[in-house]
Each structure stands twice: as C-alpha cells, then as structure tokens.
C-alpha cells in the first residue's frame, strides 16, 4: 500500500547555486501527483530529493525534512539505500541493464535485497511485468532476450516493472514518457492510473495535458519555488496564482 509524503522546508543545492528554496508540501497515500513547471524550475531536483538521489551528484546538498510514511528520509541513521528501496524511481530515459536478460532486469532489485527463493522470484517477476502491462509482449523471450533489445516504450515499461518488483511504497517518475512515441505514452499513462491503487505516485512532466490526464493533484514549480499545489482540476481551471495562470495558458515556458 502507498504511504503519504510530507516535505518541510526542503532546500537543495548544486555546488553554490540553490535549486530549491524551501519547499513544503504534503501528498496523501495512494494519489497521483503531477509536478509541472518550465525546464530548470527544479521539478526533477524535487523528486530526486524524495529518494535521496540528489546527493549522488558530486557537490549536491540537501537541507530540510522529508517524511515518507513513518520514515524520516534525511533523519540520522536512515540509510539512503533503505529509502531508495522503499521509493521506486523511473527515469526520463529508459535505462534497462543491457547485460541482463528481461527476467534479470526485473529481478535485479530483489536479488540485491537478498531474495533467493526461485519460485517467489518467478512469481514476483511475472506479477511485476503484468502490472507494467509488458508480460504478454515479453513472456517468450523472458530469459533469452536482453533488456536492451526491446523498443523504447517497452524498455520504459520494463524499468517500471523493475521498480515495482521491490514493492515500493512510493513511485517517482521523472518525465517517464518524454522520450516515447504517443502510443507508448498512452500505455504508460494507463498504467500510472492503475498503479495508484497500490502506490503513491509522483510524476514530473513538462506536458500539461499529461498532468491533467493522470494526476488528481498538481504542483506548479517556478525557479526553485513551489508556487501552487492543489487539485489538478482547480489548478487548470481556476489557478490561485497569476504565475500559474500565465504558465498553463502558455504565456511563458
């Protein structure tokens, strides 16, 4: 089941330049939240702070508080590794492991976590591929084909299956469809809609129609600040801030 996300005064830096200036927001369990905003506004940085991926960039730094369920993400003694296990992430460009088969790609996270039981592994891999709507397309080449041999859209769904296999509580998606064709994008959007039954989903997108289609909540970022956070319908119909209105009506960005 999904858990809630609570962010308090989150600030992030790349070296000396501040990318996020104190973000506070709360996301409820089992919802889909879209993060929109012009490029460079800090939306990717924001989601990368939720699972501590931001700090893997040399010179990057984070301040503030993030709680995911009962876990204090930046608390003393909370290992980043554990946070990332509980918070799955799908990246902008599909990044399957090219040296592994489709099966091994999905099982990679489980194996890292010391999961060795063959039967349960098989079950989880199959279930994850079903959830990612990829099973029927790959079941024949499961243990023969490389993850890199799939098409772009299939690769991205494979990456989603890989993230789902470790049973995360939260799923972060950083522009998951930006590198895909319209048909693959539609498949991924369908998928996101179904996934919220089991996970809390946060999706970064530069495509406002996409945000309107998949998310019930939307946050608008501009130059490192969270300008507005509300029900998607409200944001797109009666935004409370002039800058949000300017953005969704296409006046900048």
């Amino acid at each position: 089941m999904g858990v809630g996300i609570e962010v308090r005064g989150l600030r992030a830096w790349f070296g000396a330049s501040e990318a996020l200036h104190g973000i506070s927001v709360e996301m409820r369990p089992n919802t889909v939240t879209a993060i929109i905003g012009p490029s460079g506004c800090g939306k990717s940085t924001f989601v990368r702070c939720l699972n501590r991926m931001h700090e893997t960039i040399p010179g990057a730094r984070v301040e503030g508080e993030v709680r995911i369920g009962s876990t204090d993400v930046y608390g003393n003694g909370t290992p980043a590794v554990e946070v990332r296990r509980r918070v799955g992430m799908v990246f902008q460009k599909p990044n399957p492991f090219p040296t592994m088969t489709i099966y091994d790609n999905v099982a990679a996270g489980l194996k890292l976590n010391g999961f060795r039981n063959r039967r349960e592994l098989d079950e989880t891999v199959e279930r994850s591929l079903h959830m990612a709507a990829l099973w029927d397309e790959v079941k024949d080449g499961l243990k023969k084909q490389s993850g890199a041999s799939l098409s772009g859209g299939q690769q991205q769904r494979l990456c989603i299956a890989r993230a789902l296999a470790v049973q995360p509580e939260v799923l972060l998606m950083d522009e998951p469809a930006s590198a895909l064709d319209p048909i693959s994008t539609a498949k991924i959007e369908d998928l996101i809609y179904q996934l919220k039954e089991r996970f809390t989903v946060v999706i970064v997108t530069h495509n406002m129609q996409q945000a309107a289609r998949v998310a019930e909540w939307t946050g608008f970022f501009l130059m490192g600040d969270l300008i507005e956070f509300d029900k998607t319908q409200k944001i797109f119909t009666t935004p409370g801030d002039k800058r949000t209105e300017d953005y969704i009506t296409g006046r900048f960005g």
Binding site: N113, G114, F115, E120, V166, Q167
Partner: peptide, 19 residues
C-alpha cells in the same frame, strides 16, 4: 499479496550487505 512479499523483504539494510 503485497503484504506477503513485504514480510519476506528485509526492512532494514542487512548487516551483511553493509559489511
């Protein structure tokens, strides 16, 4: 289903992996 799997997953990073 999810719960069954989760109970089998180590919640904290195992000592062995850290070592």
């Amino acid at each position: 289903m999810a719960e069954a799997l989760q109970s089998g997953m180590p919640v904290r990073l195992s000592l062995r992996r850290r070592l």
